[in-house]
């Protein structure tokens, strides 16, 4: 291409006219304009800039100024067009702002049991508890014997056990775990004290399904084993939990009870206001607990003279039903969207 300053001036003048006359009333036209004049690869102005090194030295400065001015014109035209276009859209008065928003998806949700479980585990995590899990099919040793349930003892009747078929002959019976306590045993077998953990999970009872009982439910188990752990520590943990879960005003009581794997054993009740009842409410049992029985520690090879510990366990469904005012446990497993959407 023949290049000299005069030629550049002529071309610039032509482009300048074209720029001034361009009708940039749509975004598409503006984009076309931008590519034609300013585009990195094919734009005419960048192309003209590329010719500058071919000019005589004394003309290069003027050519630069000339092209800078031209570029400025193109940019200004483009910017004002975009500005105009933007103003036009945002000033449009025919938009109906009351139309519902476009939803790319429905709302999803977590199951209320997951939410209650998360709330409970969250509290214990803040108290320094780790999380452990175990299988739902268990053997007699983990579910009962190691937990100090004697064979043929009525303590086993406290938990209606669901047994499963045994593939091999002469094997000890397998069963659906009746509580999450076997996770205690598995964890203690696998490590050395100190332990400070909770074990959430699904447990099974061989019961008919009614509004107040289901063949399975969910539990959170807790275990602390260390030197110098006492019932005062247990009470500390449990009252801390109750206040965090039910609120600082919660009224609770701690009374003796019995579990084969803890001794002394205790249950925690909280007072639940029921304005319809003459007494104004009632005590609701929310968890069982106690000091880990020395037989349990010895079963997993821990010196029960040196170490003491406490354990606790609570159902998830019951406190969830209390909190939400649910009177039929089956609704958790029906999974009606009109129920799930409430949480």
């Amino acid at each position: 291409m023949e290049t000299n300053l005069e030629y550049l001036k002529t071309v610039a003048a032509t482009f300048s006219e074209e720029i001034a006359g361009a009708e940039l009333d749509t975004p598409a036209k503006s984009e076309e304009f931008r590519i034609r004049f300013l585009g990195q690869r094919r734009g005419v102005i960048p192309k003209l800039f590329k010719t500058i090194p071919d000019l005589p030295k004394q003309d290069r400065r003027s050519a630069g100024q000339l092209l800078n001015a031209l570029r400025k014109e193109a940019q200004t035209a483009l910017e004002s067009a975009i500005e105009q276009y933007r103003v036009k859209v945002s000033n449009a008065s025919d938009i109906d702002l009351t139309l519902p928003g476009r939803r790319s998806q429905w709302a999803g949700s977590r199951h209320p049991i997951t939410l209650a479980l998360a709330k409970i585990t969250d509290i214990f995590k803040h108290m320094g508890f780790a999380i452990a899990e175990g299988p739902e099919i268990e053997d007699d040793w983990h579910n009962f014997s190691a937990l100090n349930f004697p064979a043929d003892h009525p303590a086993r009747d406290m938990q209606d056990t669901l047994f499963v078929e045994e593939p091999g002959e002469g094997r000890a019976g397998a069963m659906m775990r009746t509580h999450t306590s076997p996770v205690q045993i598995r964890t203690m077998m696998a490590g050395e004290p100190p332990f400070r953990l909770i074990a959430p999970g699904r447990v099974f009872r061989n019961e008919a399904i009614t509004y107040k009982s289901y063949c399975l439910f969910h539990q959170v188990e807790g275990l602390v084993v260390d030197q110098g752990v006492t019932m005062a520590d247990l009470k500390h943990t449990l009252s801390g939990f109750a206040r965090a879960f039910f609120g600082d005003e919660v009224k609770m009581r701690f009374r003796p009870s019995y579990f084969p794997f803890t001794e002394p054993s205790g249950e925690v009740d909280i007072w639940w206001d029921l304005p319809d009842r003459p007494e104004g409410g009632r005590w609701m049992e929310i968890l069982g607990s106690g000091m880990v029985h020395p037989n349990v520690l010895e079963a997993v090879g821990i010196d029960s003279e040196r170490y003491t510990g406490y354990a606790f366990g609570m159902g998830i469904e019951r406190p969830a039903m209390l909190r939400y005012g649910i009177d039929d446990i089956r609704i958790f497993y029906e999974n009606d969207v009109r129920f799930l959407a409430q949480f």
Partner: peptide, 18 residues
Amino acid sequence: VHAYLNGHGFREIYTNSL
């Protein structure tokens, strides 16, 4: 995974193991 599926409109369910 919960957050992903919830964000994509899935509702969590709990069904019977039996």
